[in-house]
Amino acid sequence: MQKKDTIFTRLYHGILVENPTAVLCLGLCPTLAVTTTAKNGLAMGIVTGIVLVLSEFFISLLKRVIPKKDRMIIYVLISACFTTIIQLVLNAYYPDISESLGVFVSLTAVNGVIFGRADNYAMQNNPGLALFDGIGFGIGYTLIITILGAVREILGIGTIFGIRVIPDGYTLSIAALAPGAFFLLACIIAVAQKIKGGRSA
C-alpha cells in the first residue's frame, strides 16, 4: 500500500475510503454534540481539520526524535499546542463561534482522529504525505460533520445556515437533541457505507 501512496490517494482515502467519521467512526463525541446547526458542524470540522493537518505535519517532521515509548505524550503535547492556539484565535476574532462550540474546541486536543492518524500514518511517512493525509481526513471529517449539522438543523430547527426552509411548527425537534444526532449519524454512516460499497451497512 505504501509503495503507491500519493497525494491524491491520501485525499481520496481521507474523504471517502477511510472517512474518519463515516467509516472509521472516530471523533464521534464532538460530531454528536456540536452538530445542532450546519454552521457549528462546519466550524468544528475546520477547527479539527487545521489541528489535524498541523499535528500530522509536525509529528511526521519530528518522528525521528520522538521517543517511541513516549509518543502518546508527544501527540497530546503537539495537538494541545495547536488546539490552544486555534482557541485563542477563535476567542479573539470569532468569539461567537468559540462560544457556540464551547468546551469541544478544547477537547479537539484529544480527538481520536488526530491520534489515529498521527500514530497510523504521520509516524510512518514523510511530512509532505502526512500533510495531505491531514488535509484529506480533515476534509472528510468536515464533510460528514457539516452534513450531519445541516440535516439536524433542517429537521430540528427548520433552517439551513440560518435561512428558514421549513415553516415553524413543521419541524422535528428531536433531530436537534442527542437521540436525533445518534439516529441521523447512523443513517449517514449507512449511506456512506453503501456509497463505498462496503458490506457492513
Binding site: 457549528n40 462560544e99 464551547g102 468546551v103
Partner: peptide, 10 residues
C-alpha cells in the same frame, strides 16, 4: 459568559 455550553444552552 457561558462555560461548558452546548449549543442549545445558547
Amino acid at each position: 459568559h457561558i462555560s461548558e455550553a452546548k449549543d442549545l444552552d445558547l
